[in-house]
Design a protein around this nucleic acid. Structure first.
Length: 713
DNA sequence: TTCCCGCGGATTTTT
DNA sequence: TCCGCGGGAA
């Protein structure tokens, strides 16, 4: 047996060596799923003689892709470089650059991010004579994005939503929006996925080529796939059916981004004969954390029961904290973090919350105590104004039809091209149905009603642009970036518009961007620029989340997925915050809120703190708050309060009394009343008791440690 | 053209 | 409470 199997548990091994047909791995938190994927890849290569060139592994985040690559590198050495490992979006972008011509796509398309998409929606609304105030561009964009995620093109969408007024508006905007993207030679994130699917559906020979090339497909975080991603996976695996998907429905927290939990449920239907493997041994958390998390998630109705277990110690009880308000909450957390650090107990700590707004008092508390922290989220590097400006110049050097970038920098730094001139040129573009770039050239070259001064300024801008375009063909990304900075006198602009530290800070961000550009110096001018721009476009915030020891991580629950910390604080455990009030009226969304809490809890390795405030300032007003309903689901046996900690030393969480239930025994349950034990099965450090209750049909199953049972006979 | 004030809206955001 | 945007004045 190859040594890659040596360090795996039986279930993991089963998943790794399963024959290359369809395989569904249901993996609980901390059960080693990344390791299983990596080892399966290694096994395919080493034991089954599959060429690494024929394997594709897909993830959702760049970070996950990077971690996968690192793991495979350790396992396989240089061979790993021949594998295709990447995010859905990155892989689709590559496919479309390679073969998108069949769909009429230009190889040098740009990728529009959220802001640019929203801007484009807004312009599309205006084009249609609609008021962006009445139809929030964000909401319209959301609907368009959802449509694309479900592979609904404009015509489908309009046909299906003819009656509903809002959807009818969305349909019209969708159409215009796509036109505008096309003009700009741009794709949005959803287009990358939908485009790849369309390419494969409409051009079977292209699909056949990819199916032939990639004989083995592995997909991570499968519970987060949307329909487009699932369709893509099915197409790629259509011939050989060598598809392995890994996921955990209990950790599905992105349905609002069109992730569809049904994909994981229909997998067995779409791939008949699929093998299913459960990874239930947890290597991350203490028994206490796991039991509490299970007690919470078990309340969801729409789920497949998994029985997580661990060989880890029981660990300290879960600390339940009630503070007076959000300030005291933050203060308590900060003091506790300080205490953990001083005792070297905590290692890394993370504070998790439902909404970004909750980070503020926490930051203040940490600042006050002088404890270093890192805030995940907030203004991201690539969203900073100065970074976007400069990136826009580089994008234009690559593709001048990119209207969003064009509009962004036309008068940045200010060069006297004001709103009036921009409006004139935009109108020209609309009237003659020209891309902005073409309209600009026309307005500069011919008399179309602009003043001589305006024409001259436009000419000056175009000259700059053409200079950069020419340079893009010859210079490395860094040199091109330097040229852009120099020609636009961008530093001067920064320092003058925001004298003192702000301007300098912005300049330092650009120096950092130069560092990134430098990495793409050896690829040759055009290719290097393309790769650099793609990196910038598909970049995300958690990518850079390094292990900075001694630094508390402040993070939303959503962003915390996939991470782990020795000590975790979840704050704001109040009705209306978690679960969030926006979810109250929708049962499906309420189940997702619960999963979100479950995800947060299962990030903890050793210590878990569940913190709430009695009253909280929210949207300005301070109001009293009720404890989150989830807190009541956690067995009191597993918890402790700060006051109790003063008295008791940390007691083991698993009660000794759970050992003895046998079939035939009479018991009483706090909620269900009298019953008789039908079966009792050891479930690793616990006992699963099956009970039939008097006067009730069927049986119910409990974990002895959690159920409030009492022997009556 | 640019700057400043007032109003409205505020969940989460893998790419 | 705080941020971003649009409209009006300098």
């Amino acid at each position: 047996m190859p040594d890659i199997l040596a360090e795996l548990n039986p279930a993991q091994r089963q998943a790794v060596v399963a024959p290359p047909g369809p395989l569904l791995i249901l993996a609980g938190p901390g059960s080693g799923k990344t390791r299983v994927i990596a080892h399966r890849v290694a096994y395919l290569i080493q034991a089954r003689g599959v060429s690494p060139r024929r394997i594709m592994a897909v993830t959702f985040t760049n970070k996950a892709a990077r971690e996968m690559k690192e793991r495979l590198n350790r396992l396989l050495g240089p061979t790993a470089l021949e594998l295709t490992v990447g995010t859905f979006h990155a892989i689709c972008a590559r496919i479309l650059r390679q073969d998108g011509a069949a769909l009429g796509l230009d190889r040098s398309f740009v990728i529009y991010d959220d802001d640019e998409q929203r801007g484009l929606v807004k312009e599309s609304l205006v084009d249609l004579g609609l008021d962006p105030k009445q139809h929030s561009p964000g909401a319209v964009l959301g609907a368009i994005s959802a449509a694309k995620s479900q592979l609904m093109e404009v015509e489908d969408f309009r046909r299906r939503h003819a009656q509903d007024y809002f959807q009818e508006v969305v349909g019209r905007v969708y159409e215009r929006y796509q036109e505008r993207l096309r003009e700009s030679k741009a794709l949005d994130f959803d287009d990358l996925l939908m485009g790849a699917v369309q390419l494969f559906q409409r051009h079977p020979p292209v699909l056949a080529r990819y199916q032939e090339r990639y004989q083995h497909l592995l997909v991570d975080e499968f519970q987060d796939t949307n329909l487009a991603q699932y369709a893509l996976a099915r197409l790629l695996a259509g011939g050989h059916r060598h598809i392995c998907v890994v996921g955990d429905p209990d950790q599905s927290i992105y349905s609002w981004r069109s992730a569809d939990i049904r994909n994981i449920l229909s997998f067995e239907r779409d791939f008949p004969g699929a093998q299913v493997v459960y990874l239930e041994q947890n290597y991350r958390s203490t028994q206490t954390v796991l039991q509490a998390a299970h007690a919470v998630i078990a309340k969801n109705k729409e789920r497949k029961e998994k029985q997580l277990w661990t060989e880890n110690a029981a660990g300290p009880p879960i600390m339940m904290v009630e503070a007076y308000d959000e300030k005291e909450e933050a203060q308590w957390v900060a003091l506790e973090v300080e205490r953990l650090l001083s005792q070297e107990k905590g290692g890394q700590c993370a504070v998790m919350y439902r909404t970004n707004a909750q980070s503020r008092p926490l930051e203040e508390a940490f600042l006050h105590l002088g404890l270093p922290y890192q805030l995940v989220g907030g203004t991201r590097f690539y969203e900073r104004r100065e970074v976007r400006d400069v990136v826009a110049y580089l994008r234009l050097a690559h593709n001048p039809y990119d209207s969003a970038s064009l509009a962004r920098v036309l008068n940045v730094p200010p060069r006297g091209i004001g709103a009036k001139t921009i409006e004139d040129v935009s109108r020209l573009a609309r009237q003659r149905e020209l891309p902005l770039y073409a309209a600009l050239q026309l307005a500069a070259a011919e008399d179309v009603g602009l003043s001589a001064a305006a024409r001259q300024r436009l000419g000056g801008f175009l000259e700059l642009l053409h200079r950069l375009m020419a340079a893009a063909k010859e210079l490395a990304p860094l040199a091109l970036l330097n040229l852009a900075l120099e020609r636009t006198a961008y530093r001067q602009y920064l320092v003058e518009s925001e004298p003192g530290r702000p301007g300098e800070e912005r300049w330092e961000n650009l120096l950092e961007l130069r560092g990134v550009a430098e990495e793409y110096g050896e690829m040759g001018p055009g290719v290097g620029l393309e790769a650099f721009l793609e990196r910038v476009a598909l970049h995300s915030d958690t990518d850079e989340l390094g292990e900075k020891p001694e630094r508390v991580t402040l993070i939303t629950l959503h962003q915390a997925k996939g991470l782990e910390f020795p000590a975790v604080f979840i704050v704001g455990l109040e009705e209306g915050i978690l679960p969030h009030s926006r979810s109250f009226d929708d049962p499906a969304q309420m189940e997702e809120e619960r999963r979100l809490f479950y995800v947060g809890m299962t990030r903890a390795q050793e210590r878990l703190y569940l913190v709430r405030a009695f009253r909280r300032r929210y949207l300005g007003a301070s109001t009293p708050r009720l404890p989150s309903r989830y807190l009541a689901d956690i067995p009191a046996l597993l918890t402790i309060t700060p006051r109790e900690r003063g008295r008791a030393a940390e007691r083991p969480a698993a009660p000794a009394a759970l050992a003895a239930y046998r079939a035939g025994e009479k018991v009483r349950h706090a909620q269900f009343g009298d019953g008789i034990v039908v079966a009792a099965q050891p479930a690793r450090d616990d006992l699963e008791v099956t009970i039939a209750f008097k006067g009730q049909p069927g049986v119910r199953k409990f974990l002895a440690s959690l159920a409030q049972l009492e022997k009556t006979g």
